[in-house]
Design a protein around this nucleic acid. Structure first.
Length: 799
RNA sequence: GCCGAAGUGGCGGAACUGGCAGACGCGCACGAUUCAAAAUUGUGUUCCGUGAGGAGUGAGGGUUCGAUUCCCUCCUUCGGCACCA
């Protein structure tokens, strides 16, 4: 098999083609891998044949729970399991003919790799972007382990199915929210498809509005306590319609009234509710009056503060001003507890407020002092300005995006390179002591305390404080799965560097990734996290200053369903394993079929009959080449023009990732050739080796194995994969006749065959005598004739 | 609810910036080859109609000589987010 390596700092044009590196699971490559990698491989091979210097790397995102679980279950070392799995994946990738540059293979579990993952974390700490905080986690009482959100399925532990609960433990948190605006703005410099941009923007969830202070009045008192309840709202124009306040059960103010048994009871019930129940949209809003009041900062009215878990402590300030006339949730709550509803927007249509909230932005503001008469859109900035002048409120922005919990209580991940000293607090591990190597041990079972299994390894945990030398302890949590994949595209530029994550000049040459192929499931989190880390590294000055974004283009490949049109799963028994089909039909047939199934980004069902059809095509091509190889002489005109056109069409489609139509063109061309060589009155057209070589080249990216065999059979030198794509010759197409569609009043009435050199008048003369057309022309008055070059002639008549 | 994508034969899907709708493949039908079957191979295959012809790209309107393509109104499906104030 031919090997492929990217050239270092070459003066050729570069192309960095990246497919998401896989998690090497124990079951081997699945069909989804085969599908997405084949797309990347076809494109990479095609670009090489266009003369580009292509970087098409592969590696392993090998930290992760399945390996850890498997290791725990079987008592084996995750390191060994990973090695076996990656060996299997690599072998299967070879069988499928993927042209990865294996000299650049990386593995996130390799200490020489995660040294730099740890280095990035240290930089985050140094820049104040990572901090330790008490954060709630999902806890599985059966596995005795903290779970990441993605490990909780419908409120249950992904591994054992036990219902999870929430616990609060101290964790490392990364301030991704600081980059929220940059992560939105940076999208403008990419050409991701709309879907991907939208999901990123959606996830960040930026909303503009105001923060407003409401002075708190303690129970039984008339005077304000001096304390303020601050709320965030996107509708400051409705402030005058606020009739009560609601705070989340976890809001600090609530602790002051916990001696109220009704409050204590409600807070306890809310705490026990699972995340599922709390976010269930349909669940009834219940709450409890706190006994506290606020003074409306504008009207001076006293308003009650309620406690309810429909208000989230994690968003805004954890407290809201309720405007039941103009917010559905507030309306529902007010109706339930008989709280007043005061409209302050006059709707354009009839509206009966006790029935529903009027949330539209159409209408006029009323009963609102300084902003009366304005439309809500005008009133929002006016209200903010008015409040700001009086020190009551100010413009504010809020995000759905939350800071990123970076700790995992697992063994099989990158150790977080931090040391805790009683005297000095948290210290980063000095850079020259990186990597902090994950110790290989016999027992890496989870502990009862919720700590990572690493906590049990005292000889590893106990260490001198890097600052004062006193006895200290290592952080025993590890990093999340995302950590290693946040920056791997940089490492591919320079995978063996031991002084830096990658050499600046090499990154300058290769970055950004030109095309990044991956699944929809990574369009939000992985893409956001890795863009954030890249932007952070950009601020550090360790990646090229003129490249603010890591990925130029993002392509999300589709999904292959089982033959039953359902998602593949073991339980359904509809799983398709690529290896089986490589054996049965060959890698070329499987690859070509996968690319032929439909658009690259579509969801499509597996169909073995259709695969057989592709196999038939390849066999037919092989037979055709064998029959015609070494004939000598020159190909006929029809043959030359068909092959010439195919080269152009396949190139255009492949470059645009329209693999299905590219293959259709090849099939069509083979059908044409078969017809052309058929003897008509004695002699069919000749097919010379030169044209057969072109065919081998054009199919080479799709069917790398047989194309090379065919190439050599028809006199190709070396490997077809090192050859240059056949040149398109426009002059060959000039000899072909054109078929012009003839219309009368836009309806097809016939066709006429003309030379490409024919003038409009000549075509018209031929067309007018065409029976289908002539019939109509004689019946009516000709108004005008519209000719679209090379396509249509339309006769507009009346009568 | 918000955001995004998409509705074309029996099926997967083609159709460049408005210009022959159904390329290519699957399936199906009939034929060739075969003792027979498989494999291979030929022809046909949007629907209605014997035919001339007519209808037709989710539904309804519009613009245009001409609309799968552009505009408006609606319907449906899929995907993401969602008590986010």
């Amino acid at each position: 098999m031919v090997e492929f390596h990217a050239q270092e700092l070459d003066d050729q044009e570069k192309r960095y083609v990246l497919v998401e590196f896989p998690y090497p699971s124990g079951v081997g490559l699945h069909i989804g891998h085969a599908f997405s990698f084949t797309g990347g491989d076809v494109y990479a091979r095609f670009e090489r044949m266009q003369g580009k210097n292509v970087l098409f790397p592969m590696g392993w995102d090998a930290f992760g729970l399945p390996t850890e679980n498997y290791a725990i279950r079987t008592g084996r070392k995750p390191q060994d399991v990973t090695r076996e799995n990656t060996d299997m994946f690599r072998k299967q990738m070879h069988e499928l003919g993927f042209s990865f540059d294996w000299e650049r293979e990386v593995n996130t579990t390799d200490p020489s790799y995660y040294q730099w993952t740890q280095w990035i974390f240290i930089k985050l700490v140094e820049k104040g972007l990572a901090y330790k905080s008490e954060m709630p986690i999902n806890w599985c009482p059966s596995c005795k382990v903290g779970l990441a959100n993605e490990e909780v399925v419908d409120g249950h532990c992904e591994r054992c199915g036990t219902q999870t609960e929430r616990r609060t433990i101290s964790q490392w948190v990364v301030r991704i929210t600081k980059y929220a605006d940059r992560l939105i703005d940076g999208l403008e410099q990419t050409n991701f498809i709309e879907k991907v941009k939208a999901s990123q923007i959606n996830w960040i969830g930026r909303s503009e509005g105001a923060r407003i202070k409401f002075p708190v009045v303690m129970p039984g008192q008339v005077e304000e306590s001096g304390e303020n309840l601050e709320v965030f709202t996107t509708r400051p124009d409705t402030l005058w319609g606020c009739t009560f306040m609601v705070v989340a059960p976890e809001h600090p103010l609530v602790s002051k009234v916990m001696d109220n048994p009704a409050v204590a009871d409600y807070v306890e019930r809310a705490r026990r509710k699972s995340e599922m129940e709390r976010t269930e949209q349909t669940h009834e809003k219940d709450g409890v009056f706190s006994g506290l009041m606020v003074r409306h900062p504008v009207t001076g009215q006293e308003l009650p503060i309620w406690i309810s878990d429909f208000v989230l402590v994690t968003y805004g300030t954890g407290a809201i001003m309720a405007v039941p006339a103009h917010d559905e949730r507030d309306h529902q709550f007010a109706t339930q507890y008989g709280l007043p509803i005061v409209p302050v927007i006059q709707p354009e249509e009839d509206w009966y407020f006790p029935n529903a909230a009027y949330t539209s932005m159409a209408g006029r503001v009323v009963n609102s002092g300084p902003i009366d008469g304005l439309t809500p859109a005008e009133a929002i900035p006016a209200a903010v300005a008015w409040l700001a002048e009086r020190g009551i409120g100010e413009r504010a922005v809020s995000y759905h995006l939350r800071d990123w919990i970076f700790s995992r209580q697992h063994y099989w991940g990158e150790p977080i390179p931090m040391i805790y000293c009683e005297k000095c607090g948290w210290q980063t591990v000095p850079e020259d002591q990186l990597p902090v190597v994950l110790p290989e041990v016999e027992h890496y079972k989870p502990t009862d305390t919720g700590e990572s299994p690493l906590a049990a390894i005292t000889e590893w945990v106990n260490v001198a404080c890097p600052h004062c030398g006193a006895p200290a302890r290592r952080e025993t949590d590890t990093m999340p799965n995302w950590a290693g994949s946040d920056w791997y595209f940089l490492r591919f530029c320079d995978p063996h560097n031991d002084h830096a994550l990658a050499d600046m000049e090499k990154m300058r040459y290769w970055m950004p990734v030109d095309v990044y192929i991956g699944g929809d499931e990574h369009n939000t989190l992985h893409l956001l996290y890795s863009r954030f880390i890249y932007q952070f590294l950009h601020d550090l000055g360790v990646v090229p200053a003129d490249k603010p974004e890591p990925y130029q283009k993002r392509l999300s490949h589709g999904v292959i369903l089982g033959p039953d049109n359902q998602r593949m799963s073991k339980s359904r028994g509809n799983v398709i394993v690529p290896g089986e089909y490589v054996e049965k039909y060959g890698a070329d047939a499987l690859r070509t079929y996968l690319m032929f199934m439909g658009p690259y980004d579509a969801t499509m069902a597996w169909n073995e009959r259709a695969l057989l059809g592709v196999k038939r095509f390849l066999d037919k091509l092989e037979r055709f080449v064998n029959e015609h190889a070494g004939q000598g002489g020159h190909s006929g005109e029809g043959v030359r023009s068909a092959i010439n056109r195919m080269g152009k069409e396949v190139a255009e489609d492949t470059a645009a990732f329209k693999f299905n139509t590219a293959i259709a063109h090849m099939m069509e061309t083979l059908n044409t050739l078969t017809a052309l060589v058929e003897p008509v009155e004695g002699q069919g057209e000749v097919v010379a080796d030169a044209e057969l070589r072109h065919f081998a080249q054009v199919i080479a990216p799709y069917a790398p194995f047989i194309s090379d065999t065919l190439w050599q059979k028809v006199g190709g030198e070396g490997s077809v994969h090192h050859s240059r794509w056949p040149q398109y010759d426009p002059s060959l197409q000039l000899e072909e006749m054109m078929v012009i569609a003839l219309q009368v009043n836009g309806k097809l009435r016939g066709t006429v065959e003309v030379s490409p050199l024919a003038t409009e008048a000549e075509i018209r003369a031929k067309a007018e005598v065409q029976t289908g057309v002539a019939k109509f022309l004689s019946q009516g008055q000709l108004l005008k004739v519209i000719y679209i070059t090379g396509r249509t002639m339309n006769f507009v008549i009346r009568g």
